[in-house]
Amino acid sequence: MFSTILEQIVNGIVTGSVYAIVAVGMTMIFGVLRAINFAHGEYYMLGTFGAWFSIDYLGLSYEASIVVGVLSTIVVAYVVGKLVMQRMVGAPAESGVLATLGIALVLQNTVILVFGGGYKFFSGGYIEPVSILGFSLAQQRILILVVCLLVFVGLELMVTYSRMGKSMRAVSQNVDCCEVVGIDVPQVVLRTFILGAALAALSGVLTAPVNVSVYGGMGELITFKTLPIIIMGGLGNVRGTFFAAMILGIAESLVATYVGLQFRDTVGFATLILMLMWRPHGLFSTQARF
């Protein structure tokens, strides 16, 4: 009994790690733009497709495909960032919703047009199971967990000490003052956006071996899973996002085991409703920042 619960908690932490890497990008983009990026899951999908393409068509190894997947997403994110995201600085909230939903449709359907709507089989990765604590786990899942921790330590350091991190925080606090003191706001927005998209792509490439299938619509589900996480974490809060992702991952895993798999997706949405009713500013902030 105890070992089953432990196993499910570990499963949940692995799932949570995937969500966390995607969600942290979304929350940082919210921080600088005050807009929820509804196209965020599409960058997760693009990264996975880039990796799948480089393995199936170019014959590259899985390690190389991670690089290709992330780099190709960065290129797309640069174009979208220049053409769309930079124009959203100071724009009303609805334009952000419309623009990012539009981008989501364009990216998703372009991929479906080019590669077809069917599921693709992702063959790379380290899927051999290893045994720890009395149950078995694919090596890839351990890799996901390690990468997630590294990403969060890195981001924490960057946000606290680097110039880019400081300017990101500044932009998220007051755009007008940033302009007064000479911070290039559009530049900060673009860089944050590219970083967020690249992290989503990385998460996609890391998850692909255990999820096996790759298809055009796969990003949508991730967007809707990360939405409750960033709200729970407190919009724009990097550390809060990490814990919120873990909570959701573990809760989903326990619900799937003890209530039923069909109720798994309910957890995220139910959490979202509860959060919006009682703590719209998130679990980890004492008051609403926005």
Binding site: L221, S253, T257, L261
Partner: peptide
């Protein structure tokens, strides 16, 4: 008895059960 939604990718919990 478990039912999965179309698009589900994580069956570890159910398989462990």
């Amino acid at each position: 008895e478990d039912y999965y939604k179309e698009g589900e990718v994580d069956f570890r919990s159910v398989l462990a059960k």
